[in-house]
């Protein structure tokens, strides 16, 4: 059964991730384990997830801390090597690239925007050196004059002045630094940008500026975004499709309106119920009991069952698979797949 998305476009997705897994060995050093008789500890940060991102679209991953969404971002851009699974960019299996030159061709087409505008810019570098680093790293332009010219253009594109290139990062506010970060991401003319919580360190009014800027740039350069966030309101504003993550797994993947207007998975509903709502709609927000489990020692079966109001014996025993419903929405919940089969 093809999803409506697949029917719409004939071109392959820009990014396709299948069965992606990443485990971290967080056990104590060998000697300590030997002396204290402790066993190995494996943190399963990402436990087999699949998604795809179409050209010019924004796919958002939401979830609470420790759900593995940032790990996915780091896997996609190659900061981590996957434990298992496949990442295909524009039809090319990333793992099949071996030479530096091949990797550079791929890396030029991807960029990343980070969360902390205070840590993501080298404090000892001038802004024009920061922004032009990808140009120099990939050898896109020759000659200082050409690079200088281009850096000025990039700064202007993100709403800064070309003269700002002379300054150091500490002379800018958080929002302006995030603009510099975006200018750097655009420097290699990528078609895909991974945004890891790009506005969570910013004030709301600054956040609005940055989100508007990112949307404008997306239209202008036909960019695709992988947008990582814990803020559902921001996700609703930015995303075309949304994946909700809980303890390293996707529990629901759907178009943005479906997620917000008719959430299916109990965890998605919980998330939506708990956000404090500045619009005073009078909706009763019911606090949910229970905490996020420790990812080193996740619950058996469906990871969400201890907090789920509808959990059954089956949920405690076996984890549900992500299944595609007739509507094209993908959801991993026994209760929902059972009712759709009927």
């Amino acid at each position: 059964m093809a999803t409506p998305d697949q029917l719409k476009t004939n071109t392959p997705p820009l990014l396709r991730v299948t069965g992606l897994k990443r485990y971290f060995d967080v056990s104590e050093p060998f000697l300590n384990r030997l002396l204290e008789g402790k066993s190995r500890l494996i943190l399963k940060a990402v436990i087999g997830i699949d998604f795809k991102i179409n050209r010019g679209q924004t796919f958002a991953l939401v979830g609470e801390s420790g759900c593995g969404k940032s790990t996915v971002a780091n896997l996609v851009v190659g900061l981590y090597q996957p434990t298992a699974g496949k990442i295909e960019f524009d039809g090319i299996d990333v793992a099949s690239l071996t030479s530096r030159a091949q990797m550079a061709l791929l890396r030029r087409r991807m960029a990343m925007i980070f969360q902390d505008p205070y840590a993501s810019l080298n404090p000892r570098w001038r802004v024009d050196a920061i922004v032009s680093e990808p140009i120099r790293a990939f050898g896109l332009l020759k000659g200082t004059q050409a690079i200088f010219q281009r850096t000025g253009e990039l700064l202007a594109q993100v709403g800064l002045s070309p003269a700002d290139g002379e300054k150091y990062p500490h002379e800018f506010s958080g929002g302006q630094r995030q603009r510099i970060s975006i200018a750097r991401a655009l420097a290699s003319e990528p078609d895909f940008i991974v945004c890891d919580e790009p506005t969570s360190a910013l004030d709301v009014s600054v956040q609005a500026q940055i989100l508007n800027l990112m949307k404008g740039l997306q239209k202008k350069f036909d960019l695709s975004y992988l947008f990582i966030s814990h803020d559902l309101a921001v996700v609703r504003h930015m995303a075309d499709r949304v994946g909700v993550m809980y303890l390293g797994q996707l529990c629901e993947v759907a178009p943005v309106d479906a997620i917000f207007d008719s959430p299916l998975h109990p965890y998605t509903r919980l998330l939506l119920d708990t956000i404090p709502d500045p619009e005073l709609t009078g909706r009763s927000s019911q606090p949910v009991t229970g905490e996020i489990p420790n990812p080193i020692d996740p619950p058996s079966g469906c990871a969400f069952h201890p907090r789920c109001p509808e959990s059954t014996d089956k949920c405690r025993r076996e984890g549900p698979e992500l299944t595609t419903l007739d509507s094209g929405v993908q959801v991993a919940c026994h209760a929902i797949s059972a009712s759709s089969e009927k």
């Binding site: 190659g78 900061l79 530096r100 890396r107 030029r108 990343m112 993501s120 080298n122 970060s181 750097r184």
Partner: peptide, 11 residues
């Protein structure tokens, strides 16, 4: 720090 990761991302 993220500025180091950013340099790693571009290889």
């Amino acid at each position: 720090m993220e500025y180091v990761q950013s340099a790693r991302v571009i290889g």
